[in-house]
């Protein structure tokens, strides 16, 4: 609000490493063309995405609304019973700004239907009746539960994709994709992804430029799988440091010794290298055993969209 004086010592909303700063006007334009192109080539006019209340999905909602209009976007909020109520409030704030369609799909019954009733914190094992997953599933780890939740959200979005007649838009950023902080066939599943080549710091920069609500930009990133969880506490590093490290190692092809010379901690560098290598399988289409004369992805190589492939 322009008529209110800023707080005396207003903190910047986020830390943006200099080498990661992008021209946000060009990025908006490029991404808008990308979104329109993907939809047109597939014969779709509408899009659907999962809106968590976090910055990544908020930014994608803004980008899609800018590209095709908010009236063609459906945001689906899919909380589990332990999801933070603040997350839903933040998601609603995004929807309020954009004026797009919104649906609430609680995934609690889907998840508990498989794992059975969980303990009081909603994540650890409880003593209730087993679900479809059997008695063993009652004691399922947070990892199993978190992955399952992500896949229930995926299943919901692909169902809504049919009823809304829109493509599922991906909301994963480059940082989490590189370190493998994603669920295979879960949150990474999509028809196309407009922000998958933007580091978290760049997601923040672009979000600020587009007017994503400040509360969404400022809050600590979280998978929101259990109360109080944050990405940075769980992984043990800050996004600006991780983004810079990945940028120098991958985009700028610096060796381990060279990034250590730039000031990065060698233990962190080696750990992140292992995470990136260990997540390679999550970023690629599964290999098919080569047997016949032409094999998809090997020597049968067509663009995803070509004449005849549009549903329109």
């Amino acid at each position: 609000m322009s008529d209110l004086a800023p707080p005396a010592e207003s903190e910047p909303m986020f830390e943006l490493p200099l080498e990661l700063a992008i021209d946000t006007n060009v990025a908006r334009r490029l991404i808008a063309e990308f979104i329109r192109g993907q939809l047109r080539q597939a014969g779709f006019e509408r899009a659907v995405l999962g809106l968590s209340g976090g910055i990544d999905s908020a930014l994608v909602a803004f980008l899609v609304a800018e590209a095709i209009g908010a009236d063609k976007l459906l945001c689906v909020m899919m909380p589990y019973k332990t999801s933070s109520p603040a997350s839903q409030g933040d998601a609603e704030a995004v929807v309020a700004v954009l004026g797009c369609a919104v649906e609430l799909v609680e995934i609690t019954a889907m998840v508990d239907g498989y794992f059975g009733a969980s303990g009081p914190d909603g994540v650890t094992a409880g003593a209730g009746t087993p679900g479809a997953g059997g008695a063993d599933a009652l004691a399922a780890s947070a990892l199993r539960r978190g992955n399952f939740m992500a896949r229930m959200r995926m299943a919901t979005l692909y169902d809504r994709s049919v009823s809304w007649r829109g493509l599922v838009v991906g909301t994963g950023n480059k940082t989490e994709s590189l370190i493998g902080y994603t669920t295979l066939f879960g949150d990474s599943a999509c028809a196309f992804n407009p922000i998958g080549d933007l580091y978290k710091s760049q997601v923040r920069q672009l979000s600020a430029a587009m007017g994503v609500p400040e509360v969404v930009i400022r809050k600590a990133p979280s998978a929101d799988l259990w109360p109080g969880q944050t990405d940075e506490a769980e992984a043990g590093f800050s996004y600006p440091v991780l983004d810079r490290l990945l940028y120098w190692r991958i985009d700028r092809r610096r060796s381990v010794n060279e990034v250590v010379a730039l000031g990065f901690d060698r233990v962190l560098v080696e750990r992140v290298d292992r995470m990136v290598a260990g997540a390679e399988f999550k970023r690629q289409v599964p290999p098919i055993a080569k047997i016949g004369p032409r094999t998809a992805g090997v020597d049968y190589l067509y663009p995803r969209r070509r004449p005849g492939s549009s549903r329109a």
């Binding site: 080498e19 700063a21 992008i22 021209d23 006007n25 060009v26 990025a27 490029l30």
Partner: peptide, 13 residues
């Protein structure tokens, strides 16, 4: 193909 959107580039590209 457009790439490298570094803020320091001419025309942002």
């Amino acid at each position: 193909p457009g790439r490298d959107l570094a803020l320091t580039s001419e025309a942002g590209l």
